[in-house]
Computed example of a mutant assay.
Amino acid sequence: MQRIFYSILILIFSINIASAELKVYFGKVIKLSGTPLINGKKARLRKKVFVGDKIVTDASSSISIKLKNKTVFVISPDSEVILTKTDKNNEKTEIELKKGSLRSLVTKLKPGNSYNVVSSGAVAGVKGTEFIAYSNENALCVFTEEGVVAVSTDNGSVETKKKEMSQASRDLAPLNPVNFDQDETLKDMFHTLLSITDFEIPDELEKSKRLPDIIARWNINYSKYLADAKRYEEALKSLDYAVLFAKSKEFKSEAIYRKSILKSKHMNDINGAKILLNQIIDQYPGTTYYEYALFQLGFIAYEQKDYISCKEYFQKYKEQFPEGRFISTVDVILSLIPEQS
């Protein structure tokens, strides 16, 4: 009986050792505020974290982790992060940013080493630098403070250097880098992110909740500049990111509408434009650009001499917007349609 008892003790001890060996040390908590959670439990100062751990912050908490190689990253309020991968010397490190923002201060990496932040089908690969990554689960936005960050998806890669911003998401090529120090809106976004990755919970926290729509609005405005420069493909990409980031249905519908105008007026893709306009009709009733889309569908039908469809769209327009902004144009076009149509 005593022999059996000792055998059980040895077995339990062996299992505990094996479990400990399976856990790969990632780093330790060096600073926190509020009540961030690690695997659902309240985080503590100097607590060790391991590969596979999930860290969640609420609206009033943040946490900072230090790796063995002295790299530090700060997780801002309202964020969710998974410590995906590292090794004993932090030579190959990967963090998944599910949502929110994460600021990284990466020590200079040796050749062959890597530090990656993965989010929304995109990767921010660091080459010894300081940068901030923000994700709304649909897309990733990267602001590089110092050094170089390679932002990549399956559809391409760009390098963002000091004071540059890029965006990326699955199924899209990354946005070409833009200097955020020369754009007041981008500079304001960067300082908001910088502030919320500090440990004094700032006044900017309220503004940070509006970041998705601020980024969307910037993309819409930037697309106009690109279109004026006849960089139509880049303008479309910027509008794609506007749709991905926007919370507001108004911003989403505006971005889709502007994509339709680019396709119809500058890219000779009328069918593509009609698909986008119908998307607004189906998904965004009640927005400003629903009216625009309904009118544009009628106008395209008239130009294509599809008078039956034109009359259907414009009759619908007159019923829904009897005092609409295009009502006089609608009446004129209807009067020009041959009677036999």
Rank of each mutant, 00 (worst) to 15 (best):
F131R: 06
N39G: 13
S62I: 12
P322A: 05
N138R: 13
V330P: 03
I308P: 04
S7L: 13
S135D: 10
L194W: 14
F180W: 09
L236P: 07
S64V: 07
M189Q: 09
N268C: 07
S166G: 06
S169P: 06
N221A: 12
K88Q: 11
H191I: 10
A59D: 08
D269A: 05
T84S: 15
D154E: 10
S253Y: 01
S7F: 13
G27T: 04
V332S: 14
V81W: 06
K98F: 14
A293Q: 05
K42M: 04
K249W: 00
K237T: 13
L244V: 01
R231P: 06
S14M: 13
M1D: 08
N69V: 09
T129A: 08
R46K: 15
I275R: 02
K66H: 06
V106R: 03
F143P: 02
A242R: 03
A139S: 11
D171C: 05
Q283E: 09
I300F: 09
A273T: 02
N69Q: 00
S208K: 06
P285T: 00
S61K: 12
T84W: 15
V29N: 02
F326P: 00
E130T: 12
I55T: 04
P322I: 10
K316A: 03
I4Q: 15
S14W: 04
V330E: 02
L186H: 02
P111T: 05
Y307I: 10
Y290Q: 00
L83M: 06
L109A: 09
L37V: 03
I280E: 04
D198T: 15
V148N: 07
Y134H: 07
V178N: 03
K207A: 03
T35S: 14
L32Q: 14
I270R: 01
A122V: 10
S208G: 05
S104D: 10
V74I: 08
F5Q: 15
L334W: 10
G298E: 01
A246N: 03
K263W: 04
S79F: 06
P212T: 11
A139I: 04
I55R: 00
N113L: 07
K31I: 09
D282E: 12
S104G: 10
V118A: 10
A150F: 09
S335P: 12
K92L: 08
D188W: 14
D198P: 09
D203A: 08
Y290P: 00
G147C: 02
P36H: 03
T185G: 01
G286A: 01
E137L: 00
I275S: 01
D282R: 06
Q182S: 06
E80R: 09
I337W: 04
E94L: 04
A168R: 01
H191Q: 13
L140T: 11
K47P: 03
L244M: 08
E303Y: 11
E146C: 02
L105Q: 12
T107G: 07
L9S: 09
I214N: 13
E130D: 15
N271E: 14
S260V: 02
S7T: 15
D58W: 07
L236Y: 01
N113P: 08
V123K: 01
V148A: 11
L67A: 07
S157I: 12
Y225Q: 11
E339N: 00
I75N: 00
A43V: 13
E303M: 10
F190N: 13
L186E: 13
L205E: 13
S120A: 14
I8P: 06
Q279H: 09
I95W: 04
D331W: 11
I333M: 12
K68C: 00
S62N: 11
E206M: 04
H266G: 07
S335W: 11
Y225G: 08
